[in-house]
Simulated assay, not measured.
Amino acid sequence: MALGGCSSGDSDSGSAAEPELKVGGAFMPQPVGDMAGGFMTVTNTGDAADKLTSVTSPLSDDVQIHETKDQKMRQVKSFDIPANGELKLERGGSHIMFMGIKKQPKQGDKVRIELHFEKSDPIEVDLPVEAATHNPAKH
Rank of each mutant, 00 (worst) to 15 (best):
A49P: 08
G93E: 10
A17V: 04
T53Y: 04
G38M: 01
R91D: 14
D12P: 15
M40T: 06
N135H: 06
A132E: 11
K88E: 12
K119R: 11
R74K: 15
I65C: 09
D121H: 03
S60N: 03
T41A: 07
P122A: 05
R112L: 12
S8T: 13
G108V: 00
D50H: 00
P19S: 02
N44P: 02
S7P: 05
V23L: 00
I65P: 10
D109Y: 03
K72M: 09
A2T: 15
E67A: 09
G93C: 02
A16R: 09
P128A: 09
S8I: 11
K51I: 00
L59H: 01
S54R: 10
T68P: 06
E118R: 13
D121T: 06
D12L: 14
M1T: 13
Q75G: 08
F117R: 01
S120P: 01
Q104A: 12
A137M: 07
V129M: 00
P19T: 03
F39E: 00
T56Q: 07
N135E: 06
C6M: 15
G38K: 04
F79C: 07
Q71T: 14
K138C: 02
S15V: 14
D50M: 02
I96H: 03
G46H: 10
H134N: 06
P82V: 04
D50T: 00
G14Q: 13
G108E: 01
K110S: 10
D80V: 11
S8R: 12
D12W: 10
Q71V: 13
G108C: 02
L3I: 13
Q64V: 12
F27N: 04
V32L: 13
L115P: 00
A83Q: 12
Q64E: 13
I101R: 00
V125Y: 03
V32G: 14
F98T: 04
K106E: 13
E18Y: 02
K102P: 04
T68S: 11
M1V: 11
G100F: 04
A17H: 06
D10R: 14
L87Q: 07
K69N: 12
F117I: 05
R91G: 14
T68C: 11
D62Y: 10
Q75T: 15
D12A: 15
K77T: 14
M97I: 05
M99S: 10
D50F: 01
F117Q: 05
L59Y: 03
V55F: 04
A132G: 10
K138W: 03
P128W: 08
K72L: 07
G92M: 11
K119T: 12
T53S: 11
V125K: 03
F27D: 03
A26E: 11
E86W: 07
